[in-house]
Amino acid sequence: MNTIQEIQTEIIEDFAMFDDWMQKYEYLIDLGKELSPIEEQYKTEDNLIKGCQSRVWLHAEHTKGKIIYTADSDAIMTKGIVAVLINVLSGQSPSEIANAKLDFINKIGLKEQLSPTRANGLVSMIKQMKIYALAFNN
């Protein structure tokens, strides 16, 4: 398993290949479509991260010292970014997740997706992923 930093570097390299926004968005849409589905039993009100517009469901399990995240969103662009975040953090240890600096977001030009516009639940999602990590760390 690569470290969080290594995975971030790979993602930055992947996104650097795109010439324009359209390729980037199409890639995110594909990632969204390919994201392994969350088990239906976890798509509950408790696991719902509310954005103003698109909704994100996040579930976390702690096994063998690693956290496995699964998630879903009703908007495909949001789901694509959710998939990137899961690629980066899922399978890592609680302490690594809790301390992770997610600087790839700025570098792949997705900062606008994570501005506090309340439009999507992504800012809250990252926070929730870290809260799980802190909880499992204790």
């Binding site: 359209m22 908007a75 495909i76 949001t78």
Partner: peptide
């Protein structure tokens, strides 16, 4: 999802509300 539509057409200069 309306959010996806709004996000994409924004890149083409079109401002709508979703």
């Amino acid at each position: 999802h309306p959010y996806d539509i709004g996000m994409i057409i924004d890149k083409m200069g079109v401002a709508i509300r979703t």
